[in-house]
Amino acid sequence: MRHCQSDASLLIIVPAYNEAGQIVQVIENIRAHVPQADIVVVNDGSKDDTLERAQQTGVTVLDLPYNLGIGGAVQTGYRYALRGNYDMAVQIDGDGQHDPAELGKLVRALSESGADMAVGSRFLDKQGYQSTRTRLIGIRFLSMLVSSLTGRKATDTTSGFRICGRRAIALFADRYPTDYPEVEALMLMHKHGLRFVECPVSMRPRLHGRSSITALKSVYYMIKVTLAILLLQSRRRSAEEAV
Rank of each mutant, 00 (worst) to 15 (best):
Q56L: 10
N85A: 12
S121R: 00
G71Y: 03
S147H: 10
G209F: 01
F123D: 11
R2D: 05
A101P: 01
N67S: 12
T132N: 14
R195D: 13
S238W: 12
Q91I: 13
Q5M: 07
Q5T: 05
Q130E: 07
G160D: 02
T150R: 02
K224Y: 06
A215K: 14
A185D: 03
H33Y: 14
Q91D: 12
A89L: 00
T150N: 03
H208Q: 12
S212H: 08
A239G: 00
V197L: 04
Q25H: 09
G160L: 00
G209T: 00
F161C: 02
P100C: 04
Y80S: 02
A215G: 01
V34S: 11
D99V: 05
G114E: 01
I229A: 03
G94N: 06
Q36K: 09
L194G: 05
R133M: 07
H192E: 13
A215V: 10
N29A: 13
G193D: 11
A89F: 00
G165Y: 08
G77H: 09
I13S: 11
A173I: 05
L216N: 03
R31T: 03
Q56P: 01
G104L: 00
L82A: 14
T214M: 08
R79H: 02
K191H: 10
M1P: 09
S121N: 05
G94T: 09
V90E: 06
V90S: 12
V201I: 15
L64K: 07
L110M: 00
V107F: 12
T155Q: 08
K224V: 09
A168N: 10
T157G: 08
T150Y: 09
E112T: 08
V183C: 10
M144T: 06
R133G: 01
L124T: 03
D93G: 10
I213P: 06
